[in-house]
Structure formats: C-alpha cells, structure tokens
Design a protein around this nucleic acid. Structure first.
Length: 293
DNA sequence: CCGCGGGCCTGAGAGC
DNA sequence: TGCTCTCAGGCCCGCG
C-alpha cells in the first residue's frame, strides 16, 4: 500500500494503542520478510515500553524505553491491524483470524493497552529491524534519505539544488528517495499533474543557471504539499491492500486526477485532454499530455 | 557518480 | 472452471 500518506495514516492508527504501552509479547511467524529477522529481534522488543511512534519517509519508527528503535517498512503490500481486547478470542494467545489472509500475518505484538497489533504482508517486501537510537545516523536503511516533503527543509530552493544537472526525468527524480523521501508512484503522478508539468521533462529544468529554483520548482513543491496533505486528511488511498488500522478504507483514490485513469477525461477545467499511460523506469506513469508541459 | 533494468514475492484480474 | 499472462502503492543491486 504504502506511500507517505498511507504510512502516516497507519502511524496515527497505531499511536493510541502503542504509545505509552508496553509490548507484553512479540512473535514472528516466519524467519524472514524481505530480510531475515535479527536473532535477538523478539528479545529486544518484549517487555519494552513504546515511548513514541514516529515516521520518517515511508518508515515507521517506534522508540523504546531501552534506547532501541523499532524500524518498520511496509514494502508494497504490508498492513497493520489493531485488534481490540474485546475481539481477541483467547486472552493468553494471539488472535487467530479466519481466512487465507491469516497465512500472511507475520509479526504480532500484544500491547499492555489491551490491543494486539498484527503486521500482515503477502508479498513480504516489508521488513522490521531493531537498532540502537544512537546508531540511527549510521543506519544504512536511513542514510541518504532526502528531506521530508512536508518538513521545513523541503522547499523549491532545496529541490532545485538536488535536481540541478540531473539528466533523468522529473518522474524518476521525484521517485528517488534521496531527492525527497516519501513519494511513490501514485503521488508523483498526482503532484506532476497538479503542477501541470510533464513527467518526461528533465529534472534539471527545476534549476536556473545559477541553481536557483525556477517557477516550475515552486509549482511542484506547492503541488506536492497539497496532494500529500489532502491524501493524509482522506486516510490515504485504498487500491488493493491499504486500510486504516481499524479496517476502514482510505478514500483519496476518489480524488485521483490521473493515477489509474488511463483513457478517461482530463480533470483540468477546460482542458478536454485524455489521460494516458506509459512506462518510465519500469513503472506506469499516468498523465495528461495536453495540460502537462 | 549516474541511470536503467532485473529481481524479490504473492495475488488479482483479464483473456482465452 | 482453469490456465497463462500482466500488473501492482517499494527498493536493492549490478551493469554499462
């Protein structure tokens, strides 16, 4: 599911049951997701109080009282469910859900708040890792991540600077987590549409002769802000996998202007164009060739 | 260093 | 019904 708005939605769903609560019991149901779990993974979690639940790019980060941080990434198909105490079928054991879906429940936490937190991930591109907080800045998974798109450090000047001289397309540049961290295929397409910029345009076009931000860069940053904030407000986008931790669907997919709308009319007032799809760097790009220049 | 294509996994949906 | 093919919200790696 997960781009920044979906991960942020998950964070907000988990926060009330995890923050300030203790992990009474942790369980992994297979040896690996994308990577093998660390040998001491469960041991470093069990008994720990979660002092805070944050997000960096598409990572969730649970701060533990021990000084460790639990890093969680949802990959392509990862999701969390919160199962309230009332719905647990046996107090000592983890909830056993029905259906084939249960085969992909890979990590479970019983929290002292009374809830079970269950991580499900059919494709297993997701992963979890426990690292010491004072080693965060050396963590290879996080090193090199660019600025948070909704943070203060991300503005037109910064975007222009990191795109200056880039031969690659705007689409590829925005998908590059070193340039800006948290966008994925949906929100890149949607932001480019809202900025009326072609996904084929060279990334270098965001910077002027001296590296100063062009109007394009300013438009793009504004569009990224708007689309991410709107999507977070809607609880993210539910296409296949994404649900809020409560099971409710996000509804930003109803606000897509180009993503997954191949052949449908452009939603720019008075444009009259048709949304097209093509492949860039192995991923589908959706855009309106008439109003994105 | 940079940009691209392949690979990692499973499941859903289309077409036959 | 069932087979085969394509595609999917991410990211790492190796190649040129």
């Amino acid at each position: 599911m997960p781009e920044l708005p979906e991960v942020e939605t998950v964070r907000r769903g988990l926060q009330p049951v995890m923050e300030g609560a203790r992990i009474l019991k942790a369980e992994t149901r297979r040896a690996d997701l994308r990577f093998h779990f660390q040998p001491d993974f469960v041991k470093r979690l069990q008994g720990q109080t979660v002092t805070g639940l944050g997000r960096r790019a598409k990572y969730l980060m649970a701060d533990l009282a021990s000084g460790d941080v639990l890093l969680m990434h949802l990959g392509m198909s990862g999701s969390f469910r919160v199962i309230k105490a009332d719905d647990q079928n046996s107090p000592g054991e983890f909830h056993h859900p029905r259906g084939k879906d249960a085969a992909h429940d890979h990590v479970l936490f019983r929290m002292s708040s009374g809830a079970d937190v269950v991580f499900n991930d059919p494709r297993r591109f997701g992963y979890m890792k426990v690292i010491a907080r004072d080693a965060l800045d050396r963590e290879p998974l996080l090193r090199g991540l660019g600025p948070e798109p909704l943070g203060n450090a991300f503005d037109a000047a910064m975007l222009a600077q990191s795109c200056a001289g880039k031969k690659t397309s705007l689409k590829a540049a925005l998908l590059d987590q070193r340039v800006v961290a948290g966008l994925g295929n949906i929100y890149v397409c949607e932001a480019l549409f809202r900025a009326h910029l072609s996904p084929k345009r060279q990334a270098a076009a965001l910077a002027g002769r001296k590296g100063e931000p062009t109007d394009h860069a300013k438009r793009l940053v504004a569009a990224i802000h708007v689309v991410l904030n709107d999507a977070i407000r809607a609880g993210g986008s539910s296409l296949r996998d994404h649900r809020q931790t409560s099971g409710e669907l996000g509804y930003f997919q109803h606000s897509f202007r180009v993503y997954d709308r191949e052949g449908e009319p452009c939603r720019t007032a008075g444009c009259g164009g048709v949304v097209r799809r093509f492949t860039q760097n192995g991923r589908s790009t959706f855009w309106c060739p008439k109003c994105q220049k």
